[in-house]
Write a protein that binds this DNA or RNA. Structure first.
Length: 753
DNA sequence: CTGTGATCAATC
DNA sequence: ATTGATCACAGT
């Protein structure tokens, strides 16, 4: 039998091999001889026959690595789509769709962890039988009866170390023929030991009930197979709708489901709620899992022992059987787009996988991505809405503090501290909450102490030697740090250019706000949550746990505190500076700002006590901020969609960002110009409806010592865009020349930085 | 006339 | 990605 094998190499084609004596299903991993070496690959199809080459060259498959395909049919089809759309060889895609331990070429059983267990082989029903078998061997009889009471088997090491049965006793049972030592697979699941905070189950609101009805009809194929967008304001109970959908699919229909969450470490509450309802049929695909644990979770899904996978974007490849639903929570989140190859968007893959399997695809958000909203308005997605919070709780009032105003307010603050980043109004409200023993969340989307360091006398700003970005001062570490390449150096005491000692630390970061908060509210219990305080494995979990138990008065952090958290004790949210996200040179800056403000404002007032939000900004008239104040998603979306007509950006068309990087600036520019000229030629000669903008330096034009230039492709036609990218791939695939020049194709980029 | 490096084609 | 072939130019 001849088969097509995809190899994890940058070669966009498959190779034909022979499976000697027998057959093998697509999705099976094989080892093959390729050139001089042996590689692991996947059988992806029966051989096409015309296979583009000399039949005499076809070699035998070296070994089949598994009897059951590691890639199921629907995942294989999903990977094919990914390979085609994002212009990437199929073998490389498949490699990212299975746990890393499987791409090393080991057999499917090898990564499993086993333990030795003592297991009963014979029943001794009567007392007489027991007397006869054991005689005076009292301890052996005790061990035998212990095993009977624990279901017939027990861990051998545990019997010896914890229960005091020596090897002699165990061997005695074995030699009497009533028990045996066996290897048993261990299923590592670090979550099984974690408490599942049982959430009070609310009765559904009318809107929730309507949504659930539509969704459960959809699971029975009554609503067509469109993706469904659930727009529910913060606190409207989207999670409960997801749970009801999964109850229908998993408990009533006996099918499987996938739940995607933006970053699983940041959403422990969401995960805990699913675990509370579905218990041990859930596999949690957490980034902190070891490779072995990840493999176990994957295998249990593959074998149907677990039916729900919950995890970040890569969980879209989970080998869930008989898939009935995919839920994408916070579907607007940028983290669903992978920032390295393969640069897929998990939301798009989820929609495709749902289409392939007939599953329901549910996108949920309070602030849908404009693309999703646009699709819903155009009728491509079905739209469901949850317009009010549960139990009729109001959305919190949002108040603006204008950072530009040099009136009494700010002067008071300035008199106290010239660098004050908390306005008197915000300070006053925090005092009030401290007095009432209520909690405050403070958001600032910048970490470190000061975002740049500048000489007051000559204006020199300290930059990273490898990247074209300013260095951030971290006071705790007493270092200047580059947030792109992690370069560190000592903070200067003298300006090397003008020898002045008058050096200022500018641009407030979370570390500095933390200091200000400590000085202003000395008795408050404060927790800071950003990349610098959450590097330890379960650090997120620990910090959020303290907040949940009421051990923290003020939680301060970057955007990682803005999402999905549900703490009824939080009655005040302060946005220290709303402008940070707005000033990025990216067409999504307004959208990001609006989403961040809406999401973080939604953390306030989830309990009975209500809540308030303070937004400090120097752009109080910007529509992104104004709409966020009024909780007006639709107003924002309409205005922003209009704004993106000139120059045209998504959702009006599709983008691809082509980046060429290299260590030499001139060679990089020369190459990007060559590439752009080539693309322009291809577009013109085929009359493809695609336009090219650039080339130009990337917004951050040097990272890790590499110069970066890019150009943008715009098209309303996905097909034409695909053809252009494909021709670029062929042009560059076998490209000779200094290998240090690299080309990246980012289709539907989420950020242009 | 050999040796090192760059460039290119091929891999079932 | 990796290997082997081919070709240029440098040092002998």
């Amino acid at each position: 039998m001849l088969v097509e094998v995809a190899l994890p190499l940058p070669i966009p084609r498959t190779f034909t091999y022979r499976v000697p004596g027998g057959t093998a299903l697509p999705g099976t991993r094989v080892r093959v001889v390729f050139g001089k070496r042996k590689l692991m690959g996947w059988i992806v199809a029966p051989a096409t026959g015309d296979g583009g080459g000399d039949p005499a060259k076809i070699r035998d498959v070296d070994a089949l690595l598994e009897s059951q395909p590691s890639i199921t049919t629907d995942v294989l089809d999903l990977c094919r789509w990914l390979s085609d759309y994002y212009v990437l060889p199929l073998g490389q895609v498949l490699k990212t769709a299975v746990p890393a331990v499987l791409s090393g070429g080991v057999g499917i059983d090898a990564p499993s962890k086993t333990r030795r267990v003592l297991r009963l082989t014979r029943e001794l029903l009567t007392l007489g039988e027991r007397e006869e078998v054991f005689g005076r061997a009292q301890r052996q009889r005790e061990l035998f009866e212990l095993l009977e009471n624990t279901g017939g088997s027990a861990d051998a090491a545990h019997l010896v170390s914890q229960l005091g049965f020596s090897h002699v006793i165990i061997n005695g049972l074995v030699s009497r023929g009533v028990a045996e030592i066996a290897e048993e697979r261990v299923d590592r699941d670090p979550f099984s030991a974690m408490p599942t905070a049982l959430h009070p189950s609310f009765t559904l609101t009318d809107a929730q009930r309507d949504a659930v009805r539509v969704l459960s009809n959809a699971t029975r194929g009554k609503e067509g197979n469109q993706p469904i967008l659930l727009r529910g304001v913060t606190g409207s109970g989207k999670t409960l709708v997801y749970i009801e959908l999964l109850k229908e699919v998993v408990q009533r229909q006996g099918r499987g489901a996938i739940v995607l969450v933006p970053e699983i470490a940041l959403t422990p509450q969401t995960v805990a709620r699913f675990r509370a309802v579905f218990g041990d049929v859930i596999a949690v695909l957490h980034s902190a899992l070891s490779e072995g644990e990840r493999f176990d979770a994957w295998r249990m899904l593959r074998e149907g022992e677990k039916r729900i996978a919950i995890g970040a974007r890569s969980a879209v490849f989970a080998p869930v059987r008989d898939l009935g639903a995919i839920v994408i929570d916070e579907e607007h989140e940028a983290s669903y787009k992978q920032s390295e190859s393969p640069r897929y968007h998990a939301r798009e893959l989820a929609i495709i996988r749902a289409q392939l399997t007939g599953a329901v695809c549910l996108l949920g958000s309070a602030t849908p991505a404009l693309e999703s909203w646009h699709n819903a308005k155009a009728g491509k997605y079905k739209l469901l809405e949850l317009p009010v919070r549960v139990e009729g709780r109001p959305l919190p009032p949002v108040e603006v503090v204008d950072l530009r105003r040099k009136d009494a307010n700010v002067k008071v603050a300035a008199a106290l501290n010239p660098n004050a980043s908390l306005s008197p109004r915000l300070v006053e409200l925090i005092w009030d909450r401290l007095g009432k023993n209520e909690q405050t969340i403070l958001l600032l989307n910048r970490r470190g102490y000061a975002t740049f360091v500048q000489c007051r006398s000559c204006g020199e700003v300290w930059h990273c030697p490898n990247c074209n970005v300013s260095l951030t001062f971290h006071r705790g570490r007493k270092r200047l740090v580059c947030h792109y390449c992690l370069h560190e150096e000592s903070p200067p005491s003298v300006c090397p250019r003008c020898m002045s000692q008058d050096i200022s630390f500018k641009g407030v970061g979370t570390e500095q706000v933390e200091r200000e908060v400590i000085e202003t509210f000395p008795q408050a219990r404060i927790a800071r949550m950003d990349v610098d305080t959450t590097s330890a494995k379960w650090a997120h979990h620990d910090i959020l746990g303290r907040v949940e138990r009421g051990e923290v008065d003020i939680l301060l952090g970057t955007q990682m505190i803005a999402k999905g958290l549900d703490f009824p004790g939080v009655t005040l949210v302060g946005v220290v500076n709303a402008d940070v996200a707005m000033n990025l040179p990216d067409f999504r800056a307004s959208e990001r700002t609006f989403q961040l403000l809406t999401q973080v404002a939604g953390r306030a007032g989830r309990g009975e006590k209500g809540g308030a939000v303070i937004v400090q900004t120097s752009l109080p008239n910007h529509y992104a901020i104004k709409c966020a104040l009024e909780h007006d998603y639709i107003g924002f979306a309409e205005r922003e969609i209009e704004d993106r007509k000139g120059p045209r950006y998504p959702p009006h068309l599709r983008l691809s960002n082509i980046i060429i990087s290299g260590t030499e600036e001139r060679a990089t520019i020369a190459e990007v110009e060559k590439a752009a000229a080539y693309v322009n030629g291809v577009i013109a000669s085929n009359r493809w409806p695609v336009t090219l903008t650039g080339p130009a330096p990337a917004p951050i034009d040097r990272i890790r010592g590499r110069w970066r230039w890019h150009f943008l492709l715009r098209s309303e036609s996905a097909k034409a865009m695909g053809l252009v990218l494909r021709s670029l791939q062929y042009r560059y695939e076998f490209k000779a020349g200094p290998a240090e020049l690299r080309l990246v194709m980012d289709r539907d980029p989420v950020s242009l930085l």
